[in-house]
Design a protein around this nucleic acid. Structure first.
Length: 183
DNA sequence: GGGAAGATGTTCT
DNA sequence: GAACATCTTCCCT
């Protein structure tokens, strides 16, 4: 999934971002919303692969996931950061706080705001939709994938399920949540 | 430049 | 009523 493109048509403007950072959430993973069974909120995660699962958290932020496993299995990949490719002017207009390109999409809450993804887009079919969909892309020769533990969680912090393009400036600044104790 | 805490609403116990 | 897959601001170094 890293290196692919997320395309969003909004108000007649095309926004494109390249996926540079993701996290995996599996069903038997305590940090995954679906680990405690299906609820009203996590229903989409148990749907067919290719759906977009969007939830609201911390009172002011949305997070965008892509459902990955078969129907009946609650697993998804969180999109944590995108590299702005197209429509950056519209992103700046929405995100007034952003001063540089690296401020626009470098975090799950930021990219949802810039792409205008809210709960009303929850459950969208990324394969059928003309408004939100994915395009294929791949890593260049000089790019490498790095892996760390995940960010912003309090359980299963030792699971190395955060994937990102090594050295890419648009990866979020969040540090892995595993406790790094001095040797 | 970096760490700590506040903001704020939905979901689940 | 507590927790939360975060972002921003404020204050310190």
């Amino acid at each position: 999934m890293l290196g692919g493109y997320l395309v969003r048509e909004h108000n007649g403007i095309t926004l494109v971002g390249r996926i540079v950072e993701t996290e995996a959430y599996l069903q038997n993973d305590p940090a995954c919303h679906a680990s405690r069974g299906m609820t009203e909120r996590t229903r989409v995660m148990f749907g067919q692969p290719g759906l977009g699962y969007i939830y609201f958290t911390y009172g002011m932020h949305h997070c965008f996931n892509i459902v990955t496993n078969d129907e009946g299995i609650g697993e998804a990949v969180l999109i944590r950061a995108l590299e702005p490719i197209k429509g950056t002017e519209a992103m700046y207009a929405i995100r007034e706080k952003a001063k540089r390109d690296t401020d626009l999409l470098s975090g799950p809450g930021k990219l949802c705001q810039a792409f205008s993804l809210t709960r009303s887009e929850n459950g969208v079919d990324l394969i059928e939709s003309d408004l939100i969909f994915l395009e294929q892309g791949k890593l260049t020769k000089s790019e490498a994938v790095d892996v760390t533990s995940r960010v912003g969680i309090t359980v299963a912090v030792d699971k190395p399920w955060r994937f990102f393009i090594k050295g890419n400036p648009f990866v979020s600044k969040g540090r892995p949540s595993s406790k790094e104790t001095a040797p």
